[in-house]
Design a protein around this nucleic acid. Structure first.
Lengths: 144, 144
DNA sequence: TATCATTTTGAGACAGCTTATCAATTTCAA
DNA sequence: TTGAAATTGATAAGCTGTCTCAAAATGATA
């Protein structure tokens, strides 16, 4: 476990404590691997970790990534036929511009949009934790 | 076939003609049902149409909705574990404010955010067809 | 209108991704 | 150290969506 991920580890432990869940070797391992990525699928992580731990089950990875979502460390995003697990902590939140023609994904950030989101939330009495913004359309190449 | 959907019917016929495809009773029926919705899943449409046409196959619905996507009348969007087929012509979309405590969903629209989205898209050479914006957090009641 | 090559349909088989099951193992509070 | 409770790994099962293929429908042509 890299000592650079102390904060996330703490957040996970807090979530586990609150819900009578236990800290296991696998959860530590998967957290460590997950935090190194910006986003990853369960299948990809399965193959990635198979080298260091051949007996780590795919179901455990799915369960654990979903646990991370509950704990607020990850966010699931359904794309194509698979689920991408996004690393929330990864350098600020990025939104996506998705081409429905070639499936290309462009990431972007826009402070003004974020500010307006806060405004809408406040107006409705909400406190935002995370958000998801996806714009679907055609990129310049696919438009023709 | 409602006479209010002449435009879409025309667009479909044009697409069919261009690709040596045929206009069938099923395609007309599914188009008619589809245009009445803002968005729908294949499964939902299957059950909806089962009343009027019990022998309409699920595969046909999938094929036809995908055809509508090719023809530019619909757009597929992966949500949860299912695919939502959005009615392109239906432009009043709502964004969502979702409480992670009580699951309450508040719909909102914000023109300024929409405008900024267009701006971001243009800057990246994209033409937006639809988008999805979800804000996750706690409502005033759940915050305490 | 009849003909007929081509496309489409319906039903179910199949495939890919994710979750459920369950016996064995591990965790952690006492 | 003990033991109730949670977790794991392996795999079965479930769900969504696509493929297959024989039968039916379409529509261009005569």
């Amino acid at each position: 476990m890299a000592n650079t991920h102390v904060k996330e580890m703490k957040a996970l432990k807090e979530h586990l404590g609150k819900h009578q869940l236990k800290l296991t070797r696998q959860r530590e391992l998967i957290l460590s691997a997950f935090l190194r990525q910006e986003h990853i699928t369960a299948e990809a992580m399965y193959h990635q970790l198979a080298k260091s731990d051949p007996h780590l089950g795919l179901a455990t990875i799915y369960r654990t990534l979903n646990l991370f979502c509950d704990a607020g460390l990850a966010q699931a995003r359904h794309f194509g036929s698979q689920t991408q697990y996004d690393n929330i902590a990864h350098k600020g939140h990025h939104d996506h511009l998705i081409c429905t023609g070639c499936q290309k994904i462009v990431e972007f950030e826009n402070e003004e949009i974020e500010r307006l989101q806060e405004e809408v939330a406040t107006k409705n009495g909400f406190t935002i934790k995370t958000h998801r913004l996806e714009l679907y359309g055609l990129c310049s190449r696919c438009r023709h």
